[in-house]
C-alpha cells in the first residue's frame, strides 16, 4: 500500500473530535464502575443496617475522605497518563501522602489507647470480609477503567495500570465502608489500605498486558 493512498484513506470524511472526548470517556468509566459496584454491594450484602452514631460517623467520614481523595488524585493522574507523553508526578505525591497521613493518625490512636484494646481495634468487625470484598468490589471499576484506557493512548502502561487498580480499589473500599460497621483508624490502615495496595499491584502487573495499543 502506498503511503499517499493510506493518507487519502484516513483523511477522507474525517470525523470531528470533541475537545472533552477523552475526559468524558474516563469519567464515565469511573462513574459507571462505581454505580455498578454499589448495585453489586446492595445485591450481595444487602442494604446497610443502622445509621451510624456521631462518633462512628466521624470515622466513616475519614474512611470516605481517604478513599475519595485517592479516587480524585488517581483519576487526575489517569487523565494525563491516557495521553501520550510524560506522566504527571503531582497526583502520585498526593496518592503517597494520603495513606501516610492516615498511618500517622493510626499510630497516634494506638499510642493514646491502652495496649489491651489494640487487639480489638486491629481485628475489628469483619476484617476478613474487608480482605475479600474490597478486591471483589474493585473488579467492576477496574474493568470499566481498563476498557476506557484502551481507547486512549497510555505510554506508561505499568503506571497507568497501577493507578487504575488503585482507583478501582479505592472505589471498592468506599463501597464496602458504606456497609461495614464502624471501626477504628488503625483498622483502616490494615484492612483497607492493604487491599487497596493489593489492587494497585495487580493493576501494575496487568497494565502492560491489557493496555497495549
Amino acid at each position: 500500500m502506498k503511503t499517499d493512498d493510506l493518507i487519502n484513506l484516513l483523511a477522507t470524511h474525517t470525523k470531528p473530535v470533541k475537545r472533552t472526548h477523552l475526559r468524558n470517556t474516563i469519567l464515565a468509566a469511573v462513574a459507571a464502575g462505581a454505580a455498578a459496584t454499589l448495585c453489586l454491594m446492595l445485591l450481595t450484602l444487602g442494604t446497610p443496617e443502622a445509621v451510624p452514631g456521631s462518633e462512628d460517623l466521624a470515622i466513616k467520614i475519614v474512611y470516605l475522605g481517604l478513599t475519595f481523595g485517592l479516587v480524585v488524585a488517581g483519576v487526575s493522574f489517569l487523565l494525563k497518563a491516557a495521553r501520550p507523553g510524560k506522566i504527571l508526578p503531582k497526583p502520585l505525591i498526593i496518592i503517597a501522602l494520603l495513606p501516610l497521613v492516615v498511618m500517622v493518625a493510626a499510630g497516634a490512636t494506638l499510642l493514646s489507647s491502652h495496649p489491651s484494646t489494640w487487639n480489638a481495634m486491629l481485628f475489628g468487625p469483619q476484617w476478613v470480609a474487608c480482605l475479600l470484598c474490597i478486591p471483589f468490589f474493585a473488579l467492576l471499576p477496574f474493568t470499566a477503567l481498563i476498557w476506557a484506557l484502551r481507547k486512549e493512548a497510555p505510554t506508561s502502561p505499568g503506571w497507568t495500570g497501577a493507578i487504575a487498580g488503585l482507583v478501582a480499589g479505592a472505589i471498592g473500599a468506599a463501597t464496602f465502608t458504606l456497609h461495614q460497621p464502624s471501626s477504628s483508624i488503625p483498622f483502616m490502615v490494615l484492612w483497607y489500605l492493604g487491599p487497596i495496595v493489593f489492587c494497585t499491584l495487580i493493576g501494575a502487573l496487568l497494565g502492560p498486558r491489557l493496555l497495549r495499543w
Partner: peptide
C-alpha cells in the same frame, strides 16, 4: 499514521 489518526482525540 494510523495510530495518529485513530487516537487523534488523545492530543491535548
Amino acid at each position: 499514521l494510523i495510530s495518529l489518526h485513530v487516537r487523534r482525540h488523545t492530543y491535548d
